[in-house]
């Protein structure tokens, strides 16, 4: 555990708190992509299957349970809550996320470090996480004015990915036998997807106006 990894995990946690707060406090999920949230739920389930048979640390296990719980809570609110579900902008959330799932699964079957059931599913979760934000980014472009909480949620998610890259650089330079090419390449692609969003987020923040993605 290093400071970048811890900061990354806490930023990830904070992003989920911000999103849940927006949904619960405003009773609205306007501008939030249910497709992205469902992809994250799939990512967490397939990656954290190891909760059943492996133990790394209490910290890891608790965080896994928290991430799983928050992902399913968010999906529950957006799809089933009697008030919140009516605020979901279905017509703006049209990204074909099934292609992302299928593509990630094919890639995981082709490129993995061990051809076992759990390892392939874990690899699938890495690939799927890399692209899971795409429906949300497309939806932001279509939404026009984006409220602060939704903008901050995506910003925090991007920050978390950036901090993980610093964590890998730190670990690579301090640990022996630390090498995880699949995670690194996917993570760099994932972070790059936020570049455009970051540009407009910081620009609008600088000019002190609400976030609009042209």
């Amino acid at each position: 555990m290093n400071v970048f990894r811890l900061a990354g995990d806490l930023t990830h946690l904070l992003s989920l708190v911000v999103l849940l707060l927006k949904i619960v406090a405003t009773k609205s999920c306007r501008g939030v992509s249910a497709k992205t949230q469902e992809l994250y739920a799939i990512v967490f389930v397939t990656r954290y299957l190891d909760l059943l048979f492996s133990f790394v640390s209490l910290y890891n296990s608790v965080m896994k349970v928290v991430f799983l719980g928050s992902a399913f809570s968010i999906v529950y609110f957006m799809r089933y809550h009697k008030v919140v579900r009516h605020t979901y902008d279905r017509e703006l959330d049209t990204f074909r996320s099934s292609f992302l799932v299928a593509g990630s699964m094919v890639l995981a079957l082709l490129i993995n470090s061990k051809y076992t059931f759990f390892e392939v599913l874990w690899t699938f979760s890495i690939y799927l996480e890399a692209v899971a934000i795409l429906p949300q980014l497309v939806m932001l472009q279509r939404t026009g004015n984006i409220d602060n909480l939704t903008g901050n949620y995506v910003f925090l998610l991007g920050m978390y990915r950036g901090l993980y890259i610093l964590n890998w650089i730190y670990r690579y330079s301090t640990e022996r036998r630390y090498w995880q090419m699949i995670v690194w390449v996917s993570g760099i692609i994932q972070t790059a997807l936020y570049a455009d969003f970051f540009y407009y987020y910081l620009k609008c923040w600088n000019e002190n106006r609400t976030l609009v993605i042209p």
């Binding site: 890891n60 993980y164 995880q180």
Partner: peptide, 10 residues
Amino acid sequence: AIINEGHDEL
């Protein structure tokens, strides 16, 4: 517990 296969990040 079985030690995992090197996936120690979240």
